[in-house]
Every structure is written in C-alpha cells, then in structure tokens.
Design a protein around this nucleic acid. Structure first.
Length: 287
DNA sequence: TTGTGTTTTATTGCCTCC
DNA sequence: GGAGGCAATAAAACACAA
C-alpha cells in the first residue's frame, strides 16, 4: 500500500532542502502526499521565533508564514498545534517537579517536628515520673503546691494515651484550627499543638502553593505562558534553548487544581504522612 | 545492520465559540 | 453550522546501542 520514495520516484530527496528549493520546485505539490517530511532547521527556527511572539495563529499570520516558509498553511497550523502540545507537556513536567520539591520540603519539616514531639513527650513522662516519686516521698497534700490537679491529670492523660491516639487528636485539633492558624491557641498540650500547628503549616503551604501554581482566572492556559511573552512565564523559548523560560505558571484548569489541592490536603493528616510509602502520596507522586 | 525508543509530522474526532 | 482548538493516535523519520 505505502509506496516508498525511491520506489515511487526513483530519486531519494534529502530531507533538509532549503525553503527556496522547496518553493522553486513546488516541492510539496509534487510529493506523494502520504510521505512525511521534516521541516528544515531554517523553517523550524522561523516557526519557533513566531511561536515565541504569539503561540496562537491568526489566519493572516498563518498564510504569511506559509508563504515565507514555502509550506501549506495547513502545515503551519499543524506545527503550531503540535508545538503547543509539546510546550504543555514540558510545563506539566515542571509543575510536577515544583510540587514534588515543595512536598519533600514539607515532609522533612514534618519529620523534624515529629521528632521534637517525641522528645518532648519523653521529657514530660520523665518529669511526671519524678513528680510522682516526690509525691510519694513528701506525702499526700504536698502536690497541690507543685502543680494544680487538673494540670497533672492532663499530663497523665497525655502520657498514658497511645501515640497514635495523640496524633489523631492533633489532626482533629488541626481541623479546628486550620481556619485560624495564626491566632494564639490555648487549651490542649503544647506538644499536641505543635503537631497541629504543623498540619496547619502544611495546609497553609499547600494552599499558597496551589494558589500560585493554579492562579485564578478563567483561562490559566492562556494566562500563563501560552500567551505572547507574558511576564509570568518570562517568555517562551524553544526546547533547544534548554531551561524553561516558561516556568512559573500552570495551565491547569481550576478543577484539576482543586483535585491537586485535595490530594495535598489529605496529607495534612499526620497519619497519612507517616503511612505515605504505601499510601496515596506515593501513588500520586511517584506513579 | 537491526531492533528499539524517541521525536516529529499529520490525521481524526470531539468540543467550544461566534 | 463553520472555524479553530485540543487530546489521542498513527506513522514516518531519526538516534543509538548491541
């Protein structure tokens, strides 16, 4: 069915003929329609420059470019379509890397705070033990002068409660406090508050991160980098230019942003963070 | 040389906007 | 309803290791 060039014409044409040659020989008009041909470096360069200026193609610009390049207007349109798709793919990879870095940093922060939590619990247990020994040696009634009864009861509860239950309480506290993270909280132990605070920080960081990655507006795709040299993206460069000039924005629509935020918010739960190796984080982040 | 993976060009079908 | 955009996909061209 598919006939090769050599079979069809007897001559194998080099792929990188110049635009002039293409024009002179009415190259594409004469070619077998089913054979794909790569564009010349000059053609690609001009197309890239045009894409940097504006990634969408008005009809006049399309015909003008096609005339300059010796291509069919349809080919120019297809090139722009594919170029937008490549740009979007790269942007997706950059967004993923940024979010992963943010998550890794927050997880490290969380781990440090969990260690602090554990250390402080040990201190509380040790001090309470000493207090109880002192009660025994000093006799009944002396403890009233050392600590109020309700404080001692609270401490004892904290010590006796299993770690998992304490963290559950921390998560619940976080849910309550997440709406007012910066207020000076009271009620509940400082240890638990620290954990809850972390959850709040995580959620706040995710909130701001997601907000920055998925900025508001009806059309992020066009607002961030897909438009003509917008300041957010810092301009669009060709892939050959290497690093992303079009970093810093996402093309995610709002519903996808919300989904990503929801996934992150799920990990404001310390249990989820601890179990993440087998949990949804690993699924989302590394699959 | 050949097998395989990647990139590029092009098509198709669906969707949205005017 | 037509034009144009996008996602998914096919297929040719290319790169490269064995």
């Amino acid at each position: 069915m598919m006939m090769g060039l050599e079979e069809g014409r007897g001559v194998k044409r080099p792929f990188f003929t110049s635009p002039d040659e293409l024009l002179e020989e009415e190259y594409y008009d004469e070619q077998l329609p089913e054979k794909k041909r790569r564009l010349t470096p000059e053609q690609v360069h001009l197309l890239e420059r045009s894409f940097e200026e504006e990634n969408k193609l008005e009809p006049e610009r399309k015909t003008e470019l096609a005339r300059k390049l010796g291509l069919q207007p349809r080919q120019v349109a297809v090139w722009f379509q594919n170029r937008r798709a490549r740009w979007k793919t790269k942007q997706l990879e950059r967004d993923f890397d940024r979010l992963k870095d943010s998550f890794d940093a927050l997880r490290a922060d969380h781990d440090v705070l969990l260690q602090d939590n554990h250390r402080l619990r040990s201190q509380v247990a040790s001090l309470t033990e000493k207090l109880q020994e002192k009660e025994v040696t000093d006799g009944a009634g002396a403890d009233a002068a050392v600590l109020p009864v309700d404080v001692k009861a609270s401490l004892a509860d904290d010590i006796e409660e299993p770690a998992a239950a304490a963290e559950e309480a921390a998560f619940e506290a976080q849910q309550v406090k997440s709406e007012d993270r910066l207020s000076t909280g009271s009620g509940g132990s400082a240890v638990v508050d620290a954990d809850a605070l972390l959850c709040g920080r995580f959620a706040a960081a995710v909130d701001s991160s997601v907000e920055s990655y998925f900025p508001g507006g009806e059309d992020h795709y066009h607002d961030c980098g897909m438009g003509p040299m917008n300041p957010c993206a810092g301009g669009i460069q060709s892939d050959d230019d290497g690093a992303g000039s079009d970093e810093g924005c996402s093309y995610y629509p709002e519903d996808e942003a919300a989904a990503a935020a929801a996934l992150f918010a799920g990990h404001a739960n310390p249990h989820a963070a601890e179990d993440e190796d087998a949990g949804q984080i690993s699924w989302w982040m590394w699959n």
